[in-house]
Design a binder for these strands. Structure first.
Ligand SMILES: [Mn+2]
Ligand SMILES: [Mn+2]
Ligand SMILES: [Zn+2]
Ligand SMILES: [Zn+2]
Lengths: 159, 159
DNA sequence: AACTCCAATCGTAATAATTACTATTTAAGA
DNA sequence: TCTTAAATAGTAATTATTACGATTGGAGTT
């Protein structure tokens, strides 16, 4: 849960962007962004739908997906989590990267100047122009490791 | 197109793995790997299907997807290209990373010791244990840039 | 080489995420 | 308040991927 103040700042910024881009600042859009901006867990579309429904009971899947695309295109949110069955979303616009648990799909943020300022290799410049870097560190999270330990113990040599 | 010699080496290695793991070295599996190992373009499942069909006309989608999963699980191939609508596959098992064109989805390999030996930040160690790094440099490839130039010229100020 | 057996394949159906359609509603400017 | 085009809700369509059940064939045995 992110601080309410920050969340409302993000929502206000979005309303300004709507005005500038000439798109309507609807209740649905506002609530979807508010939900995402308040979360640190990079939820998927269905999770966002379920949660926003508590406040806007008639909201539709179409609106969820359409709004997420709109927000992504405006640079207000990003899509994270590679090659999984479902997309995950992120309202954190600070330059950062992700740790992904391959077991439970938990996604955590981390920051690294070294990674941000990584020099683009020659061979890449020859392929095209680089506009963004996506880094994902993959492994097993604390929680899943502990769970594995317990399971191992249960099937172990104890009488 | 990768050299035929290298491709056949990869296929032979796979046949050995089949023997060790007690799974059957079928014609279909061999041809799927041969196709993928011979390509440098990180094809998707449908592309692989189309191409393998030229040599094995009756091969089914099920076999393609099932085999790709088998090869991935055995570490013979990898899945690349994040958060797109379809998965892309890679038979290059050398440690390397990718440049991805956001326009045409072209994927190119690059190598970087610096990126491979990157120290894992403290905050990540606290989240869990890192087992792999996935890096994607995103941008616009040469070909797409030239195409954009031409289109711009056509709609420009020339009489 | 013929025999056996179970894993693998084929053709097709099912699933699940995402996108599209259309009648209805609503944000926002006059 | 009135107007209007954009946005939404409810539902259907699309698309990648996975599952199913009948049939085939790889590979070990005789
Ligand atoms: Mn994040
Ligand atoms: Mn590659
Ligand atoms: Zn986990
Ligand atoms: Zn391109």
């Amino acid at each position: 849960m992110r601080p309410k103040q920050q969340v409302e700042k993000r929502v206000a910024d979005f309303l300004e962007i709507c005005r500038r881009q000439g798109v309507k600042a609807t209740h649905q859009r506002t609530e979807i962004l508010r939900e995402l901006a308040g979360s640190e867990e990079h939820p998927d579309a269905e999770t966002i739908l379920t949660r926003v429904r508590q406040r806007v009971p008639t909201i539709s899947v179409d609106t969820i997906y359409r709004t997420l695309r709109l927000l992504e295109d405006s640079g207000v949110i990003a899509r994270v989590g590679s090659m999984r069955d479902r997309a995950r979303f992120d309202a954190n616009t600070d330059r950062h990267h992700h740790f992904v648990c391959t077991e439970c799909e938990m996604i955590g943020d981390f920051y690294s100047d070294a990674m941000d300022q990584f020099p683009v290799p020659q061979e890449v410049s020859e392929m095209g122009s680089v506009e963004g870097v996506y880094v994902e560190l993959r492994g097993i999270c604390r929680k899943c490791k502990q769970k594995a330990m317990k399971t191992e113990g249960r099937t172990g040599e104890k009488p």
